Computed example of a mutant assay.
Amino acid sequence: MTARPDDPTGSLLATLAEAGQPERLYKALEEATRSLVGHKLFTLLYVDGQDVARVYSSRPAEYPISGRKTMGETPWGELVLKRRQPFLGRDRQGIRWAFFDHVLIESMGLGSVINIPVLYDGQAIGTMNLLDVEHHYADADVAPVARLAPLLIPAFLEARAAARATDRNQIR
């Protein structure tokens, strides 16, 4: 498969075959999304039941890769995780509607967001998240990024399985 400049899927598929997964794919997706629509923060979260875990962050000082945490009921969770729809927050009002940590986000100079659910077997198993300055993103920016989300399915399933195995071992 040959990738068009505006569709990096082919080169990303080739990345999946390379050693060093999933980190190599995560970095390639960070660069591909930067080229497609831009971002100042790129994070990846997998979902396991009511828990979420960040597995990648372009700015680990502010948004570190961390263990799992339980996510309570939120309007954002209803939209992105339950209804499996992307979220486009164009401005700080959208950031404040979606995220409890909006103060940190705004302190980083970020004011717009695209959250893409990663879907598998009828469920959202994670999200790909891009943030930039206020009014950076438009409706047309969502589709090119959403086309890349399925590439994360193997990595998110593996991360979830590893976490479940760790949980089982701790119970013994």
Rank of each mutant, 00 (worst) to 15 (best):
A161E: 15
S58C: 07
R59S: 12
T15K: 05
V145R: 10
V80D: 03
V145C: 06
D121T: 09
L12M: 00
H39W: 12
R168Q: 13
G67N: 11
I95R: 07
K40H: 14
P64N: 04
S112L: 02
Q170F: 14
A161P: 01
E31M: 11
K40F: 07
K69I: 14
P144K: 08
I105H: 02
A19W: 10
H135I: 05
L88A: 10
I105D: 00
G89K: 02
R164L: 13
E18K: 14
L25D: 07
V133R: 10
P154E: 01
R172C: 11
R92H: 15
I116Y: 03
Y46K: 01
A161K: 14
A146V: 01
L25N: 09
A149G: 04
A32L: 05
G38T: 05
S58W: 06
E31Q: 15
L151C: 03
T9R: 03
A98V: 06
K69T: 15
P150H: 05
M128T: 03
R84N: 08
S58I: 07
Y46T: 00
P86R: 12
W76H: 11
V142N: 09
V80E: 00
Y137F: 14
S66W: 12
F156L: 03
S107Y: 06
I114N: 10
H39Q: 07
L110F: 02
G72E: 12
A162H: 15
V37L: 07
Y120A: 13
L44A: 02
T43A: 09
P22W: 11
N129P: 02
D91T: 08
L130Q: 06
Y56H: 14
L13V: 00
I171G: 12
D132K: 02
T70W: 15
L110E: 01
Y63K: 00
G49L: 11
Q123R: 14
A140L: 08
R164S: 10
A98I: 02
G111N: 05
D101Y: 05
L44Y: 02
N169K: 15
E106N: 03
R92G: 12
P154L: 03
I153K: 00
L131P: 01
R54S: 01
Q93Y: 11
D7Q: 04
S35F: 09
L81T: 06
L29V: 00
F99W: 08
M108T: 00
S107L: 06
D167G: 09
E62H: 14
Y120I: 03
A146H: 11
E62M: 10
R147W: 06
P64I: 02
L29H: 04
D51E: 13
A146I: 05
E62A: 15
L16C: 04
L119C: 09
T2Q: 14
V80Q: 00
F99S: 01
T166E: 15
G67V: 10
L16R: 10
T74R: 08
I125Q: 00
A28W: 09
P144T: 08
A161Y: 11
R96Y: 08
G122W: 10
P64W: 03
G67Y: 09
A140T: 14
